[in-house]
Computed example of a mutant assay.
Amino acid sequence: MAYAGYGGYSAPGGYGGPGGFSRPATGPPHGADPQLWAWFTAVDTDGSGAVGAHELEKALINGDWTPFDLDTVKLLMSMFDVDRSGTIGFNEFCGLWKYIKDWQNVFRHFDRDQSGSIDRNELRDALSQFGYNLSPQLIGLVQAKYDIKASAVVTGHGPPPGITFDRFVRACVVIKQLSEAFQRLDTDRDGWVQISYDQFMQTVLSLP
Rank of each mutant, 00 (worst) to 15 (best):
I100G: 02
D102H: 04
Q104L: 13
N105H: 06
F107H: 10
F107A: 03
F107K: 05
D111K: 08
S115Y: 00
D119V: 06
R120L: 05
L123T: 02
R124I: 04
L127V: 11
G131Q: 01
Y132L: 11
N133T: 13
P136F: 15
Q137A: 06
I139C: 12
G140V: 14
L141N: 09
L141Q: 12
V142R: 02
Q143R: 07
A144H: 13
D147N: 14
D147M: 09
D147R: 04
D147W: 01
I148E: 03
A150Y: 13
A150V: 10
S151H: 15
S151W: 04
A152W: 10
V153M: 09
V154G: 11
G156F: 01
G158N: 05
P159C: 04
P161H: 02
G162Q: 03
I163W: 01
I163Q: 04
D166M: 07
D166F: 07
D166E: 08
R167C: 03
R167T: 06
F168Q: 00
F168N: 00
R170G: 08
A171I: 01
A171N: 08
I175Y: 04
K176R: 15
L178F: 03
S179W: 03
S179K: 11
E180H: 04
E180S: 15
E180F: 00
A181Q: 01
F182N: 08
D188F: 00
D188E: 07
Q194L: 08
Q194V: 11
Y197W: 14
Y197H: 01
